[in-house]
Design a protein around this nucleic acid. Structure first.
Length: 141
DNA sequence: GCCAACGTTGGC
DNA sequence: GCCAACGTTGGC
């Protein structure tokens, strides 16, 4: 079981929109970056990830579950690009902001803080637990 | 809206 | 294989 973080601009695809997709979830399409794609290739069904609102909000607002392994991204003809499917897993009752991560010594090393342009990134177990704690979520399964 | 940081492209 | 030019992302 590994942990991840998915970024999305809320006016393009928000947490509310993912929740509206229900248990079937949706493909995390549109990623055109090799590092981000490779992270998705490494994902297993059942892996959990934070859902982060970029540009507006700048906070972790939800937790998603990977529900399908990486497969071709149907929004492009280009066979290089793949994506996983994700579905909403649970809300983060108290959204954890980018500022919260920056000022917290145990989170200051996060990819989110140090490589702001990577849209799908790994999260360390200790970072996962800390953000769950701050967000008021049971770090769970 | 600006701009820094980063990734990609393409000429050589 | 290098690197300048360009495009995109995302915080501010």
């Amino acid at each position: 079981m590994q942990y991840w973080l998915f970024k999305s601009e809320p006016f393009k695809f928000s947490w509310e929109m993912l929740k509206a997709k229900g248990a079937a979830g949706t493909q995390w399409d549109g990623v055109r970056n090799y590092q981000a794609r490779n992270n998705m290739r490494a994902m297993q069904v059942g892996d959990l990830g934070f859902f982060y609102h970029s540009n507006e909000g700048l906070a972790v607002v939800g937790i998603v579950e990977v529900c399908a392994l990486a497969h071709h991204d149907t929004t492009t003809e280009d066979a290089r690009w793949e994506c996983v499917d994700v579905r909403a897993f649970t809300d983060v009752p108290k959204p954890v902001t980018l500022d919260d991560c920056k000022v917290n010594p145990s989170l200051a090393g996060m990819v989110l803080v140090n490589n702001s342009r990577l849209s799908v990134q790994p999260v360390k177990p200790e970072e996962w637990r800390e953000i769950c704690r701050l967000g008021g979520v049971d770090p769970a399964p």
